[in-house]
Amino acid sequence: MRNIFLFIRQHFNLLLFLFLQIFSIYLIVSYSKYHNAVFAESFNKVTGKINSRYNNINQYFHLKKMNDSLIRVNENLYNKLKSDFSIPDSATQLQIDSLKLDSFSTFKKYSYLSARVVSNSVTNQINYIVLDRGKKDNLKEGMGIIDPYGNAVGIIVGVNQDYAIVMSLLHKDSHISGKLYKTGETGTLLWDGKDPETLILSGISKSAKICKGDMIITSGFSTAFPLGIKIGSVTKVYNEKASNNFKIFCKSATNFYNLTYVYIIQNKDQDGVTAMLEKVKGQQ
């Protein structure tokens, strides 16, 4: 017993060093899969507040750019106005109304909520975006985020009362279902941690016909994004000899460098679908 105490006293520094290293690595490993609730709740309360103060000041320098983007988005929306489309003449033709319910809201599956980016990074291999909306705005984990131009940005992974943390597409654990717009093949979108403008689409079989410049959109298979949100365009098709699939490099449509405002996509069916998935997984 005495020897143990002597050993600890002699090598106290080494033991403390090993303990702190192992503790840090434990934090890294445990956080990347299931986010650490204590860390998110306690630390983000402090850093989130400081970050949003900083952001308030910083925003003044981007007002011009933000104005431009708003005008462009507005233009987009004007083009979608119902009053701009002429309705086919139904007075002379007999038409049967097949809709059972004519309320618009029951058919609306996705709703959008704006949010301000409080902090963002692109240079790390693990990049998170923090938004100034949280549980009080009914945000949940798994909701998708798009930028004002309608390009995919990421998925919410952690929510506390006032802030939400988004795993951006530039994250080594990010897996988003992507689809080739032209031919319709679906694959998984990854990031290799190098260039913040280049994403990788994997899982597309070699039978697919791909050209440079093809658009990649979300597949709508997950509850996070509806079908047809733009992700990027193909820049290079790499023929992997070892596998049956292409490795497709694409330029991301989102500019991650200057995100200031984003939209959160709220899916009305999200809870139902995830609950069903859990149930099926539990049965197996």
Binding site: Q21, S24, T47, Y128
Partner: peptide, 11 residues
């Protein structure tokens, strides 16, 4: 804490 990923800089 400011980077929302504990452990790396600490280690």
């Amino acid at each position: 804490g400011f980077r929302y990923q504990p452990g790396f800089h600490a280690a």
